[in-house]
Design a protein around this nucleic acid. Structure first.
Lengths: 205, 205
DNA sequence: TAACCTATCCCCGAAAAACAGGATATTTAC
DNA sequence: GTAAATATCCTGTTTTTCGGGGATAGGTTA
């Protein structure tokens, strides 16, 4: 029985590319594509694929959220995350939300097919490069921030000084300073510059 | 005479997608593809296309630089920039470096073919969405940085202090301070935090 | 209840950055 | 060849950050 596949990606060229890579495989069946989360869910309502290839950067609802929703409603669907970047933060998040694999968009045909077949058997598959970047970047991960810390981080990024932040949040400067110090510790940053850069890279700002 | 096209993109799926979108058009000929700047230049050495489709995010040398180089050596080649994002900073840069068009990767088949045909006639073509985002985001634009400023900006982002940067670059702290001041002015930033955030958003870091 | 997390506040001193001026070579561009 | 841009350096003062501490109070949870 052929593996039924479905694709969600807002890039027409990527959809076409994947289709042309998979269409000549006899054990892989192409059910169609969606270009956003809503029409993907609508499609699943009628027909359920075995493997769902999903861009993690979707307009509106992110791939991360869509992945969680699909896995909750249709546990038989295995999800493969697709992305241009191999950012460990994205990979980790997709995994946490139930994805079975992660493939970079510069993957070869062989890699893509292996991913589809592996995941269809209920196993996990990661792009070679994705694994490398996970290993390389094994250290930090995404720090867990409290609500207040996120708030302070946002204001720091907007260029406000501790004094201004204190006024805005109706707290003492000392408190803001403590939050700031905790942020530096959590991000393992030397100063505000590296803190902001790290936060931007981890999509926390 | 068919329009000879060539593609540079490091994403295999995108190459395949474009190929499958263009291959059935009788007035468009597919010369091949390259996955990085070097092999693109090597190809051009032997065969010159009419239209060169080029991802702006290439590994190593950026699409921006490749575009300039190609236009200098082969003025008959018209370049179309390809990108996932419609960031006005990228679009502007590609134009400054001699590109004739800009198409988003979520473009439709019709749009892509129109772009190729328009550009082949020596005219300019912009994705509908690219034009929109240019209009919408007319405000700030992207600051022009000198080589030294970019260097200093990078080191600031990596968390080095002015003293450390001075040592690294074998210049005085006062000079580093001046570069820093100029960066703040160019980015219209209040302090380092907002500078780094702005630089990250504009992909300059 | 005790341990833990979160948010709040405080002190100190050294280091760094921000602000405000100005100055001088060397390229680069017109 | 002249003007503009770039890179370099200087002297101040004021503000902010950074790195140590430590303390209290409320909520959660094991």
């Amino acid at each position: 029985m052929a593996i039924k596949t479905f694709i969600v990606d807002d890039h027409y060229m990527v959809i076409e590319g994947i289709r042309s890579l998979l269409q000549n495989e006899k054990d892989i069946e192409w059910l169609g594509h969606a270009m956003n989360a809503a029409s993907c869910l609508a499609f699943l309502h009628n027909q359920v694929p075995d493997v769902l290839l999903m861009d993690i950067n979707l307009p509106g609802k992110s791939g991360i959220d869509l992945c969680r929703e699909v896995r909750e409603k249709y546990p038989s669907v295995f999800v493969i995350g697709l992305s241009t970047f191999n950012q460990q933060s994205f990979i980790e998040k997709m995994m946490e939300h139930g994805a079975s694999g992660y493939v970079l968009k510069n993957a070869t045909q062989a890699e893509l097919m292996e991913a589809v077949r592996t995941v269809a058997r209920g196993k996990s598959y990661f792009s070679h490069e994705a694994v490398l970047s996970l290993k390389k970047n094994a250290g930090p991960g995404i720090p867990v921030l409290t609500r207040r810390e996120k708030e302070v981080l946002g204001l720091i990024g907007d260029g406000y000084t501790n004094n201004e932040i204190a006024s805005k949040l109706f707290i003492s400067v000392a408190t803001v300073d403590t939050h700031r110090k905790n942020l530096l510790t959590k991000f393992d940053a030397r100063n505000i510059a590296s803190l902001i850069k790290a936060a931007m890279q981890k999509q926390l700002l």
